[in-house]
């Protein structure tokens, strides 16, 4: 047996496989920490100026998204994602990073064709299917 007999099968031995357990651990810790921070913010807002739980959660979301956009702008969010994987991409902060990174990237093509036209290219699918999923869930979850 060798690479020449069945390349697609034999080449797998040469391709380093992702460290699934370590990746899952990092995703849990970083994703969990970010969620805990958001929850702490929501609780704090709820205890201070927010008049309802919904308002407190919205403010926490805005602050977390703003934080992610800030980290994207200074070029740090992609480093966090490389470390944390799904722990950084699957959150609301990941969506904020997807929109902000595309907007920054395409600033060179102008505000309309660049920022406006390309901003959703990385996060668009998440928004489309997020809205559809929310609608379907809303039918059963009053």
């Amino acid at each position: 047996m060798g690479l020449r007999t069945d390349y697609l099968r034999e080449v797998k031995a040469f391709q380093p496989s992702p460290p699934y357990a370590a990746n899952a651990g990092k995703a849990f810790l970083v994703g969990g920490a970010l969620c805990a921070l958001a929850q702490w913010l929501a609780n704090w807002y709820g205890g201070t100026f927010a008049t309802s739980a919904l308002e407190a959660h919205l403010w926490a979301s805005i602050v977390m998204a703003g934080l992610a956009i800030g980290l994207t702008a200074v070029g740090k969010y992609d480093d966090i994602s490389q470390f944390a994987g799904a722990g950084a991409t699957m959150l609301l902060t990941g969506l904020a990073n997807a929109l902000a990174s595309a907007a920054i990237e395409h600033r060179s093509e102008g505000w309309m064709a660049g920022v406006g036209g390309q901003m959703l290219k990385a996060g668009g699918a998440a928004i489309i299917y997020g809205v559809i999923a929310a609608y379907v869930l809303g039918l059963f979850w009053p």
Binding site: Q15, P16, P18, N23, T72, A73, G75, Y77, D78, I80, S81, Q82, A84, G85, A86, A88, T89, G94, N97, A98, A100, S101, A102, I104, E105, H106, K121, A122
Partner: peptide, 12 residues
């Protein structure tokens, strides 16, 4: 992807 998009790249 956009350069600042957070995507975990594999070792390959």
């Amino acid at each position: 992807y956009p350069t600042e998009l957070g995507v975990q790249k594999p070792k390959t």
